[in-house]
Amino acid sequence: MDISEKIIESTIEIFTTMVMMDVSVDGPPLTASGTLCDTITGMIGLAGTHKGVLAIHIPNHVAIAITSSFLGMDVDEINDDVRDAVGELANMLGGNVKTILTQNGRDINLSLPSTIAGHEYGFKATTDVDLVILPFKTEQGRFLVELQLEK
């Protein structure tokens, strides 16, 4: 099983067991995340034997729906709850990627999760990286999970 398949497995498990929302793969992997519009990105850094970043890019309206389902309460705007929930999704995905890349847990360190949001922005590495960008769909719309690993 390659890393893409494991990230797909992890994403579906996280959404099924904790967010209580059905997600499925929405087509083949992408080669770039492109321009992100009205989107919030949760990300977590990896350092050690593997260096890089795991990010989840979620359009605002999808992030609001995800947070509402995650917390079991109505959310109607991008607020601290949404930023925290998206950061935690990145954290769980990053933890799973760490488990995929290392068995003993000590040769890769994870950063604390952070989020960025904006009307229009890009998410690009400044070094040469291997990219995995996977699209997923929910009833409310599409989101991307992106892994950048330094070559």
């Binding site: 990053g94 933890g95 760490k98 488990t99 290392t102 068995q103 003993n104 847990g105 000590r106 994870l110």
Partner: peptide, 10 residues
Amino acid sequence: ISTETGEDII
């Protein structure tokens, strides 16, 4: 309760 489940850390 963590995403960190490596044998060394646990």
